[in-house]
Amino acid sequence: MVSIVLIGLFLLIQAVPSLLVDNINFFTSPEWSTGDVANLRFGIRDLLVVTILSSLVALVIAMPVAMGIALFLTHYLPPRVARPFAYVIDLLAAVPSIVFGLWGAKVLGPALEPLATFLNTKLSWFPLFSGNNVSLAGGGNIFTAGIVLSIMILPIITAVSREVFQQTPVMQIEGALALGATRWEMVRTTVLPFGRSGYIAGSMLGLGRALGETVAVLLILRSSPLPSSFSVFDGGYTFASKIASAAPEFSEPLSTGAYIAAGLVLFVFTFAVNALARYVAGRGKAKAS
């Protein structure tokens, strides 16, 4: 607790001088130029948009997949078979994120290009699919980054969900089966209601990881001179990848402060997500007892 407060204080103290001399609105401007210390112009709008969009894509993919895998491992496969399978999923968490980044940028991105083109042109009535501020070629966009992030957060969501699904009381499972429920009906009437809050909490933990992921996103996303068009086919920077990309130039305190201000926003944001996860998990526990 103390260390969290100290980190927050550090970020705040470093960020305030830069925020005071910011010449544009910090929250609503897409611009980011910190080269001229006499005329700092930085806003986090696009960082926020790219961070949230990439994390949302990751969650939308990872949440159902993780639920499916967790249910399959706990209530369909015999334990003897499920254990090695679960181990493989857990192993995904051990892959270094730089490797995910390289794979996303060099393998997955180009492979997704036809799909991205299809979604971007044929399904452009869906707001998040229309427009792009970087070329679709090579796949250096939020879409690719989100898919890579979904793989990276899959193990944590799966592990937490597996844990809670496993703990469904046997007497409830038997109650459902004895009523003539099929396995899926049993899962729907007992396992899912029982594990719901844990599943959501696990997803929030995954979201926290996706929001803060740095190097994989940095390698995948292509930067763009244009502001965000609020599409998943945009390029750009997330909070974390923006800060990491500028790390070699942190010599001027006022410019550095701009990045630290962005870091502060990310800090508060992930903190809020984690607090929400804890609240949801705690509420579920209170209900179960």
Binding site: P169, M171, Q172, E174, G175, A176, L177, A178, L179, G180, A181, T182, T189, T190, P193, F194, K287, A288
Partner: peptide
């Protein structure tokens, strides 16, 4: 077996209503 269980009811040692229903 699912059909069998639909026609043969069972009551368990400990009451087990579905808690969220």
């Amino acid at each position: 077996p699912v059909e069998v269980r639909r026609t043969i009811g069972m009551v368990f040692q400990r009451p087990n209503p579905f808690p969220t229903m």
